[in-house]
Amino acid sequence: MTQGSVTHEILTILAFIYGIIFGSFANVVGYRLPRGESVVWPRSHCPNCGRTLAAWELVPVLSWLWLRGRCRTCKAPISWRYPAIELATGAAFALSAATSSGNYAQLAVWWAFWLYLASAVACDVTSLILPDVLTLPAGAVLFLASALAGIRSWAMAAAGAAVGYVIVAAIHLVTGGKMGMGDAKLNLGIGAMLGPGYMVMAFILAAIYGVVAALPLRLAGRVKPQQPIPFAPFLALAAATCAFVGPELWHVYARLTGLAP
């Protein structure tokens, strides 16, 4: 094993650790931002009994497991979304590091992108709200970062953001507002990072993921026919799919449809 491969493996492990830490912060953003609260003050506390949490209760994933998903004081349940978002963010950070070509500027931008998506997912799952204060600044920052770091050209970043916004805006108009414009604003950042082609692929995948996830819940009666379902988790999962295996998916599609020999 060469020194370079060892360094790469260490970077991947550290990326996972930092990822779950940032995932924990995303959970804070997801709970507080839709409520108009500060994401840095006051200290983390149980939303049910109000007790300030000790440091050992804030260790990502492990604290939730140790506490068996309940507050140690009032025994109120702690949602599974906390460890799920932490682990998902850690995995995205680690995969980005593992597949990195050594361009640390691009890697940092991808990490910022995963933190953004984790925060958006936490907001949507918690409150069915994607706050403008999150999506609009992030869309602008990711557009600039994507182009400056060379992830996409200026034209492709702009086209991706525009396509992502227009897709949802069109559905919003056609359905009379059944799909919220928050998803359109979320797509500004996703499109800037993926470009127009993969943005379209991501939206199609997100729709498929959403149907696959929602159909069993509807059949089981856990989701009512008109009950809104957060779409950000499916957009985030689709964006990750395109980021990590997008070219491979496109080649499979091209072969199946005869677009490629």
Rank of each mutant, 00 (worst) to 15 (best):
Y82E: 08
T52C: 02
A236K: 12
N187V: 11
R35F: 04
Y253D: 10
A220K: 15
G221P: 12
I17L: 15
A243H: 10
T52N: 10
P225M: 12
R35C: 00
M181P: 07
A238D: 00
V40R: 03
V133P: 07
I85C: 00
A108C: 11
A184L: 14
P261L: 08
F22I: 15
P60I: 11
R222C: 04
L130Q: 12
W56V: 06
F231S: 06
R222G: 03
K185N: 04
C242W: 09
V252D: 00
R255A: 13
W56H: 06
F244E: 10
R152P: 05
M193E: 05
L249M: 12
N103H: 06
D183H: 09
A157K: 05
L136F: 13
V212R: 02
L249E: 13
W250K: 13
A84R: 01
A169H: 05
C123L: 01
V200S: 07
S153C: 05
V200D: 07
A207L: 09
F16Y: 11
I171Q: 03
W64C: 06
E37M: 08
A105P: 05
G50I: 00
A238P: 09
V163T: 13
N48Y: 08
P261Y: 03
L249D: 06
T175F: 08
G210D: 01
Y198F: 08
E37C: 00
A122W: 04
F244V: 12
T126V: 02
M199N: 04
A84G: 06
I229H: 00
A55P: 04
I17E: 07
N27Y: 10
V121R: 06
P83W: 07
C46M: 05
A138S: 15
V109P: 09
W110Q: 07
F234K: 03
L53M: 04
G210R: 09
F143V: 01
Y104I: 15
P60H: 02
L215K: 02
L107H: 14
P60G: 05
Y116G: 08
G139I: 12
V121C: 11
A149M: 15
V109S: 10
R51M: 07
A138C: 13
W111V: 12
A213F: 02
L173R: 14
A112S: 15
Y31K: 01
A15W: 06
D183L: 12
M179K: 04
A105F: 15
P247I: 00
M199G: 05
R43V: 09
G150C: 10
R68Q: 03
A155F: 12
M201F: 09
P225F: 08
V245Q: 06
I85N: 04
S101R: 14
A202M: 02
A84Y: 09
A238S: 14
E248P: 02
